[in-house]
Amino acid sequence: MSIDLDVHGGGIALITINRPEKRNALDAEHYAGLSRCWETVRDDPAIRVAIITGAGDKAFSSGADLKTFIGREAELADLWLTQKGQLLNRGLEIWKPVIAAVNGYCLAGGMTLMLATDIRIAVPHATFGLAEVKRGIIAANGGTQRTAAQLPYAVAMELLLTGDSIDAQTAERWGLVNRIVPPERLLDEAMAFARRIAANAPLAVQAAKELAVRAPEMGLTMGLRMEQFVNKVLSGTADVREGKAAFADKRAPRFTGR
């Protein structure tokens, strides 16, 4: 039982929630391990893209291991430790792209984790749901926020208020996942996406993600202005010079993130 982090060639990190006997549910120990992995992805300049998946062929993650959390007493002061044990779906700022390889059940905290990723690949038997209201709580860590932002209002409210699940085909139809692939191709497809992204200029990729994520809070006028500022900054980088030289030489660019 663990959270595994492997860094592959080309700057691709693979995070695996390795608790298949519990449908990759996360207790406090595993949440702490996942937090450390996200910090590594954020801080290691050698990593350009991350993939998150679950061990086995049954579950991406079924969310929090409720048996270890419900009824557990915690200090009220902990409510204001907002930066402790930060997670991608809780608000940790990671501007490197994150790909979800959804290999089965994607429920509760597993789904809020997926909602915080940028590209999602799923297997045909994947199931998506936010059943927290059936347990007397709400879908936190972005559950109510990102669901409403990423889906039509009525669809989001159906998921949040009924707690019912949807299948992979429905998730694809509503744009929650990019594509559905056979189980044996899941990681290959995720890696192919990651390689395509990692081949691009890292600073430009991260800037594009941040501007897109911040767009709703900035508004169009500010967003357009920020695009100008960011491109002005990027125009002086070594990667821009390399991109120009590679185009002239008709070769693949060798970006360094500088």
Rank of each mutant, 00 (worst) to 15 (best):
P202E: 14
A190R: 07
A77N: 08
A154I: 09
P202D: 13
I94K: 12
E73S: 10
A100K: 04
Y153C: 01
A194G: 08
A139T: 10
G104L: 02
R195N: 06
R173C: 00
G163R: 13
I166P: 03
I70C: 15
A116C: 06
T112W: 00
W95T: 12
D65F: 13
T147V: 12
D65K: 10
I70G: 14
G175L: 02
E189S: 08
I70W: 13
P97D: 14
Q83T: 06
E93C: 01
T82S: 07
T117E: 09
K67H: 08
E132D: 14
Q145R: 09
Y105N: 00
A198S: 05
A59R: 08
C106L: 02
L81C: 02
A139W: 04
V177F: 10
D78V: 03
G91H: 11
Q86F: 01
E132F: 02
S165P: 08
A122T: 01
I137Y: 15
L115P: 08
V123G: 09
I94W: 14
T170W: 01
P152A: 04
T144S: 01
A122P: 02
L187I: 15
K96M: 03
G129T: 07
L107V: 01
M111R: 02
L115M: 15
L113D: 11
I119M: 08
A156K: 02
F128N: 02
A148D: 08
K134N: 14
A139F: 07
A140P: 00
Q169L: 03
W95K: 01
W95G: 01
E158D: 14
G104Q: 12
G142C: 11
V102Y: 02
V133A: 03
F128M: 01
V102E: 06
P182A: 14
Q169K: 04
R179A: 10
L160T: 07
V181A: 10
N103F: 04
Q86W: 05
T117A: 10
D188G: 10
R120G: 05
W174K: 12
D164I: 04
Y105P: 00
V181Y: 15
A190T: 11
V98T: 12
Y153T: 15
A131M: 01
G142T: 11
N141P: 00
R90F: 00
A100H: 06
I138R: 04
R146N: 12
A148L: 13
W174A: 02
A122M: 03
D65Y: 12
A201Q: 13
E93A: 09
R196T: 12
L87W: 13
G143P: 02
Q83Y: 07
N178K: 12
L88H: 06
M111F: 11
L161M: 08
P152G: 01
M157L: 01
V102H: 05
I197R: 15
N200I: 13
Q169V: 12
A149V: 00
C106W: 09
S62V: 04
A64T: 04
N200V: 14
